[in-house]
Design a protein around this nucleic acid. Sequence first.
DNA 1: ATATATGCAAAGCTTTTGCTGAAGA
DNA 2: TCTTCAGCAAAAGCTTTGCATATAT
Lengths: 152, 152
Amino acid sequence: MNRQPAVLGQMVDTMLSRCRAAGLNVTPQRVAIYRALLEATDHPTPEMLYQRVRPTMPSLSLATVYKVLEALAELGVVQEIAVRNDNKRYDGNMERHHHLVCSKCRKTTDLYDADLDAVEPPSSLKGFRAEAVTVQITGLCSACAPPKGKAR
Amino acid sequence: MNRQPAVLGQMVDTMLSRCRAAGLNVTPQRVAIYRALLEATDHPTPEMLYQRVRPTMPSLSLATVYKVLEALAELGVVQEIAVRNDNKRYDGNMERHHHLVCSKCRKTTDLYDADLDAVEPPSSLKGFRAEAVTVQITGLCSACAPPKGKAR
DNA sequence: ATATATGCAAAGCTTTTGCTGAAGA
DNA sequence: TCTTCAGCAAAAGCTTTGCATATAT
């Protein structure tokens, strides 16, 4: 992410306050994994973070990396990118369309919208050859949205 | 996808021509799985399609569903939605940003762009409560783009 | 002291692979 | 006939879980 060290420390501080606010312990593992993620530029997988942190923390286990990332995501200081990844999902629809993704039940719905179709990639993609633009809107679907205590 | 039966048959025909053009056999499994996907409105997983087709084709195996979907995706009549799903990937970046996804090597790069940040969800989301809008641009990254025969 | 988290090992799923017999062209 | 494919079973990955010990507050 190419941050200044000072900014990085500040982000760690924020993370620590949120841990405390949520009643979570501050552990060296949490700090190390979070720092490693902040320093990364490549959207690392849990396994990748594990490899990166282990040299300075040999006792670290992969299961802990999974648990820490889950906790950090819940704190809102880290995000799982793209659609929350459970298993493969297919679409027989090759028309231009977009997706509504429920962050709770993960249901994905097609969305057709001419305005969104009109979204153009920026010209400054430095070497990246754009082929398709898809807009993904995350939020709560009608079943999960109202506080009617439904899904879990 | 709520199509008219006639349109559905037409899509199947297109799929069949593409199979032939690509030197792939037309098999009842391919037709049945493709039809089931076209009839679905819920972005089914391979397992879900397996369950739906099996009643009319009890000998079907799950491995075949995987293979058929892969073949259909290669033909371009079906798509795997969202970021091609290998394993979990995280981002320590909670700022508003978008993604450039290479369809070949799957590398995902952050993209900051004010114009894309300005994309608004349509107002007509019928019950869906939008929280975030992310634009995903798929294409070929600089390493994979030129016909320099690199990745595979 | 007490609650929470780590590490380990095992279990659970999803997805892939190798092979043989069956089916399509 | 000859090539391609389906079905099966086993293997391979990735992720989650349960539990005992260690750690944070």
